[in-house]
Amino acid sequence: MIKIDNRVRAVFLKVLMIMAGATLSSIGLEIFLIPNDMIDGGVVGISIMASYLTHLPLGLFTFCLNLPFLLIGYKQFGKTFVISTLFAVSCLSIGVSLFHPIPSLTQDTFLAAIFGGIINGAGVGLIIRAGGSLDGTEIVAIIFDKRTSFSIGEIVMFFNIFILGIAGFLYGWDRAMYSLVAYFIAFKVIDIVVEGLDESKAVFIVSDRYAEITDALSARLGRGVTLLESQGGYSKTETMVIYIIVSRLEIAKLKSIVLGFDNDALITIGSVEVAGKKYRKKAIH
């Protein structure tokens, strides 16, 4: 019974996040970007231009143009992803239709690009966190990534540069450049929403003063610290490497602590996804 309740709760939260995300994305598009002749990237950007040229509803294009990509992605990503994405696209199609009659909150193009990018990015980020997507081009990018030497990011960027180039001919190059500003802001906001401001960072520290640094990190950051036995590849010297996971907001403090003991310490930092209770911060007294 508990397992069923947890499953129902998880599905409910997922549906709620997708609906909230689609609503935010609809607001960003219809109340900020589209009235000021700006577009988004990917399938949504193509849909905006198609709607502009044909005067048909934007929601019709966002739904229809995403369907082929969902069919392609079914075998690649599975039923859950496709259903989540189909629901997200359906919510967006309804949302842009509902918000279309509402006039833009600003006629200032720069403000529209900033706030449209922020709100749209927050919406897309919520949908991605819920396990869905609004952009079928990402599905194609992942498939092409396995068959070419280009990364997913490079393929998506190529699509979007091409789309924004077409927008330059339709709306003018100044509007295309504002669209690029909005896209860049949305991209960064998506990262923040998906990863969180408290994004985890894995840090490796190589220093002869590992004992003092370990004690200081544990005391001043309240994080668990792991010591890994290691050997220098050239010197063959036995030493210890410090391994610690912190939030990105703690990186500056960590560097200050380490370099306060050893200005020649080697610090390497990388993003990681962390699961488990052991990562939780201890109280600092």
Rank of each mutant, 00 (worst) to 15 (best):
I72T: 15
D108C: 00
A88W: 01
L65I: 11
F69P: 14
T80K: 14
H100G: 08
L56C: 01
G121H: 07
T106W: 15
V43T: 03
P103I: 09
I39S: 04
G21I: 02
Q76D: 07
R129C: 07
E30R: 04
L58V: 14
P35M: 02
H55R: 13
T62E: 13
D40H: 06
L92I: 12
C64V: 13
T54Y: 02
M38I: 06
I114L: 12
L33M: 14
I72F: 14
F12M: 15
T62A: 08
G78Y: 14
I83H: 12
L65C: 15
V44P: 00
F110R: 00
A130C: 01
L134G: 01
I48L: 03
I114Q: 01
I118T: 05
L16P: 09
T106A: 11
C91D: 05
G28F: 04
G73Q: 03
P101F: 09
I34T: 07
H100V: 03
I119D: 00
F63C: 06
S104G: 14
V82Y: 07
I114W: 08
G136L: 03
K14G: 08
Y52P: 07
T109L: 09
S84C: 13
M49D: 02
S93C: 11
F69I: 00
D108M: 02
T80L: 07
D135K: 09
G78L: 11
L33R: 11
T109M: 07
V43L: 06
L67G: 10
I46E: 01
I18W: 00
I18F: 02
M38F: 08
A22E: 11
G117I: 06
G28I: 02
I94P: 11
F63S: 12
N66F: 07
A122E: 06
V89K: 12
F87K: 04
L53W: 03
H100A: 09
I119T: 04
H55G: 02
F63L: 12
G123D: 11
A130V: 06
I119E: 01
S133R: 03
I94V: 14
G73W: 14
F69H: 14
L65G: 02
D135L: 10
P57M: 13
F99C: 13
I48D: 02
L24E: 11
C91I: 07
K75Y: 08
S25E: 13
G21W: 08
S51W: 11
K75S: 08
E30Y: 04
L67R: 14
S84K: 14
I31M: 06
F87G: 03
P35Y: 05
F61V: 09
L98Q: 03
L70A: 15
I27R: 01
A22D: 10
G42I: 03
T80C: 04
I119N: 05
A112M: 12
T54D: 10
G45Y: 04
L13P: 01
F63Q: 15
L71M: 10
F69T: 00
P101E: 15
S97P: 10
S26W: 12
K75N: 15
I102Y: 06
A130Y: 00
F110L: 14
M38G: 12
I46W: 04
S47L: 06
N66A: 07
N36G: 12
S84R: 15
S93I: 04
A22F: 13
G41Y: 12
F61Y: 08
G131Q: 07
L58A: 10
E30Q: 06
L70F: 15
T106G: 10
L24G: 09
S26P: 15
L105C: 04
F32C: 13
S84M: 15
L58P: 13
F87Q: 03
C91H: 01
